[in-house]
């Protein structure tokens, strides 16, 4: 069982649709579908709810159930399976595995939300290595096994807030980024950390698109104190199993108080720098996406409001609109990092 500590930003369970009401609604919708569309409705509704939050929660803690084990080296599977509960959790309903892995952005594999799941299937994630360079005592090219070996793996359930105003609650498996980075011994000049996604156009159709508004390889970055914050996480699994390629296998960042695009996937390079890295979204639209990209209902995206979010999955009858919380509800842990900064200016 996961140990729950209530943080200031945690949503009270009374604010959440209870799981039984949620289940009833799903059942009702499915029933409607069946009446209206007889056999067809039955067959289709059946495949759309591969995982419900209840069984998902069980799966997350037991590491068994319907979450498939995708191909991954044995040592990595064992590493993920060894994960222990941590203090980072929430009692909010989990977003089902099918949605977490079937509806997301990973533009390297296409621009529709269902493209990554379709196009990332054959992505090669083994062998994998990560280049560590820049302002560190121990630069080099490390195999994934070297990167992960000395660390204990833990479960963390985090809210994920996309800049597009939808959100999910996801049980990740991984290690604290700070623990990982400290091993490379950053020098006093290391003020920022830059991350880079795999560049492999032959595997990633999105990198071949002629009408892409973003440049590849995808680059993200954090200030060193943000990277060293206990919340910042390097994930190697989700729902108790290794990451599917569409979710950033084999190694991805999770920065839960920032918009999802900061949580870079399939990392092949970590670079410590003295100056602020030029990140992909900042290059593509500096007035729309900032380096900090902290979740903040008070600062709208120039083209849409950030005051609310749609918690997924939802239905058109119940849009599941909830208020967006500053720092995605993690203010207690991270607000001090931005003391004295004008967050309207440094969005």
């Amino acid at each position: 069982m996961l140990i729950k500590t209530r943080k200031s930003g945690d949503v009270r369970s009374s604010e959440i649709t209870s799981e039984s009401v949620y289940q009833d609604r799903r059942r009702f919708l499915r029933m409607g579908g069946q009446f209206a569309f007889a056999g067809m409705g039955l067959a289709l509704a059946g495949c759309s709810d591969a995982a419900d939050p209840q069984s998902a929660k069980k799966m997350a803690s037991s590491g068994s159930g319907d979450v498939p084990q995708l191909s991954a080296p044995d040592w990595l599977q064992q590493k993920v399976a060894s994960s222990k509960p941590s203090r980072f959790t929430t009692d909010e309903a989990l977003t089902p595995y099918a949605n977490v892995t079937g509806y997301n952005n990973f533009y390297e594999f296409g621009y529709s939300k269902d493209d990554p799941a379709k196009n990332a299937k054959n992505m090669k994630t083994d062998p994998w290595s990560v280049v560590v360079e820049g302002e560190v005592e121990k630069p080099g090219k490390y195999t994934l096994e070297d990167m992960l070996k000395p660390h204990d793996v833990e479960d963390r359930i985090y809210r994920l807030r996309c800049v597009e105003a939808w959100s999910m609650v996801i049980p990740w498996v991984g290690i604290s980024l700070a623990d990982m980075l400290k091993r490379f011994q950053p020098t006093s000049k290391a003020k920022y950390v830059q991350f880079e996604t795999l560049y492999a156009p032959e595997q990633m159709p999105g990198q071949r698109s002629s009408f892409s508004a973003i440049e590849y390889p995808y680059v993200e970055g954090l200030r060193i104190d943000e990277a060293m914050n206990p919340l910042t996480f390097m994930a190697i699994g989700v729902y108790g199993k290794t990451l599917p390629p569409q979710n950033g296998a084999p190694l991805r960042l999770i920065v839960p108080w920032k918009y999802g695009f900061k949580s870079i996937k399939s990392i092949v390079k970590i670079r410590f720098t003295e100056t602020m890295p030029r990140t992909t979204w900042v290059k593509s639209g500096p007035s729309e996406y900032g380096f900090y990209a902290n979740v903040n209902p008070e600062v709208d995206h120039p083209r849409w409001s950030q005051k609310k979010e749609r918690r997924l999955p939802n239905s058109i009858w119940e849009p599941n609109q909830i208020e967006t919380q500053k720092f995605n509800g993690y203010g207690e842990e991270v607000a001090h990092l931005y003391k004295g900064m004008d967050l309207r200016k440094f969005y």
Binding site: L29, R30, F37, L44, S48, Y103, W166, N314
Partner: peptide, 17 residues
């Protein structure tokens, strides 16, 4: 209409619709 009632528009149906 069929896709909505049979839950086929994914986890964010309002947006897709």
């Amino acid at each position: 209409v069929n896709a909505v009632t049979t839950n086929q528009l994914g986890p964010d149906p309002a947006n897709t619709l």
